[in-house]
């Protein structure tokens, strides 16, 4: 296997894992949601790397785009209710 490609895969997987940990352990809702959007973007890249463009399309459109926007609005309502 090409060492450059191996390095690419390792960097991609470790970044994805670190991002998932950061999103799960964040205490502020808006920080968690933005980290989740970034996680969706990277997961779409992982699907693209695994030669699954259909899954990458679904993840980019639903996971990062629509779910991110909906969760931002939900985090805003939660913050308003807490006040």
């Amino acid at each position: 296997m090409n060492p450059l490609l191996l390095g690419f895969d390792i960097l991609l997987s470790t970044t994805l894992l670190g991002l998932a940990l950061a999103a799960l352990t964040s205490r502020e809702p808006r920080r968690g949601v933005i980290l989740f959007i970034a996680f969706g973007l990277l997961l779409a890249l992982v699907w693209a790397r695994l030669r699954a463009p259909d899954l990458a399309l679904a993840e980019a459109a639903i996971g990062a785009g629509l779910a991110g926007a909906l969760m931002l609005s939900a985090a805003r309502r939660a913050a308003r209710r807490r006040q």
Binding site: L5, A48, R51, L57, G65, S73
Partner: peptide, 28 residues
Amino acid sequence: VIRVPALIDVALVFSLLAAVAIVAFTRR
């Protein structure tokens, strides 16, 4: 590199949805 030409559609969707999160964020 990985010879999957359909990835260009994924990039197109990425670019189309780039504004959605920002608009949802600033609407608040």
